[in-house]
């Protein structure tokens, strides 16, 4: 499959996303806002519609809308913690509603479908460059703010007292999460981005015994699921998003099985300290 230009582009973008998305995912899942990822990816479709209608690259529209939606959700979460979940749902419905209307007006219905279900054949050179930029930023921030991000997830107040610039780290995370999710829609598909956010992390949390382990394993699993999924997509002519998620679900089941077997064989290793 490497002989085709489009596949080389797709593989490059997929590899970068398969590392960046779990890095975002581990924070979102651990602070229990995984659904925000779902809301953002769905909302980004409205941006795709705007791009198609007004004639600019739909991915730019998706990014812009995602950023606006992400910061709206975050501020509602902050000022009305009791409504946090609802804010996510409302943003998602509003975004999706607009997207549906725009999709009726937008020319070229098939491009819309690309963003909905993902595709391996539509990745442009511009996508490769923009994904590379975001990938570097996400990777760098995840490493530089490793301790700060983790501490904020544990307790924002404790993190602040320990010297974490909570506002800066949160803001940077929200921005990068929004852009990463928007970019991921093209290959994985808006409907399934949330699965890539959640599943590698969920699987790694099942077996990990430390945060460092969970962090590294999430990325590793993201890469395996995604690269296998994209290859399956190419060889069997199925949509990449579906293939990636199918891999992830199978992987998760295997890990659950592994854990159950290990517990049976060595009951002491999984003992609960009470």
């Amino acid at each position: 499959m490497l002989e085709f230009d489009f596949m080389r582009r797709t593989l490059a973008v997929s590899l970068m996303l398969s590392i960046a998305v779990p890095l975002i995912g581990i924070i979102m899942v651990n602070r229990r806002t995984a659904m925000v990822g779902d809301a953002l990816s769905h909302t980004s479709l409205a941006g795709v519609g705007l791009g198609l209608i007004l004639g600019f690259d739909p991915i730019l529209g998706a990014i812009a809308i995602c950023i606006v939606a992400a910061f709206s959700i975050e501020s509602i979460r902050k000022y009305f913690p009791q409504f946090g979940d609802m804010a996510t749902a409302v943003t998602m419905s509003a975004g999706l509603g607009f997207a549906v209307i725009l999709s009726d007006i937008a020319p070229g219905g098939s491009s819309f479908e690309t963003y909905l279900f993902g595709s391996i054949s539509s990745v442009t050179s511009f996508d490769v460059i923009s994904t590379a930029v975001v990938f570097v930023l996400v990777l760098a921030s995840s490493i530089i703010f490793y301790g700060g991000l983790l501490d904020i997830v544990i307790d924002g107040n404790l993190a602040r007292l320990s010297g974490v610039n909570v506002k800066l780290v949160n803001g940077l995370f929200t921005l990068l999460a929004a852009v990463t999710i928007a970019l991921a829609c093209k290959v994985v598909g808006a409907l399934l981005v949330a699965s890539l956010i959640v599943l590698p992390v969920a699987t790694s949390l099942i077996v990990s015994r430390s945060y460092k382990q969970a962090f590294l394993l999430s990325v590793l699993l993201g890469v395996i699921y995604t690269m296998l999924g994209v290859s399956f997509s190419y060889y069997f002519d199925i949509r990449p998003g579906g293939a990636i998620v199918a891999n992830a679900v199978i992987g998760m089941l295997l890990f659950l099985l592994f854990k159950a077997v290990r517990k049976k064989l060595k009951p002491s290793s999984a003992r609960q300290i009470s």
Binding site: I143, I144, G163, S210, Y211, A214
Partner: peptide
């Protein structure tokens, strides 16, 4: 806290100001 973070990791985070440029 529902995810795995060891006591060692949790305690060491309080030394954030001493981590240097890369906050690990």
């Amino acid at each position: 806290i529902s995810f795995p973070v060891t006591c060692k990791e949790l305690v060491s985070l309080a030394m954030y100001e001493d981590f240097g440029l890369i906050k690990i």
